[in-house]
Design a protein around this nucleic acid. Sequence first.
DNA 1: CAGTATCCACATCGATACTG
DNA 2: CAGTATCGATGTGGATACTG
Lengths: 121, 121
Amino acid sequence: MNDQGRDCEELVADCRVRAVTDLFTHTWDPVVLTALRRGPRRRRELRAAIGGLSDKVLTEALRRLCAHGLLERRAFAQAPPRVEYALTALGQSLVDGPMQALGDWIIEHGDELLNAQEKTS
Amino acid sequence: MNDQGRDCEELVADCRVRAVTDLFTHTWDPVVLTALRRGPRRRRELRAAIGGLSDKVLTEALRRLCAHGLLERRAFAQAPPRVEYALTALGQSLVDGPMQALGDWIIEHGDELLNAQEKTS
DNA sequence: CAGTATCCACATCGATACTG
DNA sequence: CAGTATCGATGTGGATACTG
């Protein structure tokens, strides 16, 4: 994360690879990003669309993604409160690029992955 | 992970997105994969090339990746023991496809990511 | 060299109850 | 509706010493 200029061919720790993969170490972050790829959503919509994650975890994920500049929080002064979350340009590029590639890969190779997993478990 | 056929447009949890992103929830797994993209390596070479991870964690990562069908373990009956780890065809396709896309993205957008992070921390 | 066995620190997640 | 606070279960990683 701190050796941007260093050659990453051999010494892989602390290199750029980590800078991205760290974004995925939190289980729900990529899921939240994916859920927003079609456009902004309110907090509650998100929670319902994703399903299976607690308020606390959702809040943490949203804060983290905002802090990383991938999400933007838009609060409206209303009662009841209305808050929307939207991908920033940076976040959108991540979703449309690498995460789309990830999705394409699983569509093509997902079965192989599951088969291999079952064999050994 | 178990609802392969389900529509993932809206309900994101337990869908295919997770099947891939779960591969990245373990910090070192993608690093190990990347370190093997040029060809097979012995355990010790790997540890040295990556740097900063313990024997235990390396072992765990290797076992997990083998179990998922992404890595192959080749042991030679020798003294001292010689063991090589190599990407399978499946693993290679993951590294050359999605992980390459991830690397390309960070090369292009890494600075934005770091700037945004520093602003908020 | 390859791999295992403990012990410990720490973070993530889940469930629940509560505030504005 | 949006968000916070707390507690506990679980798991991931680090350090160290040891076996074949």
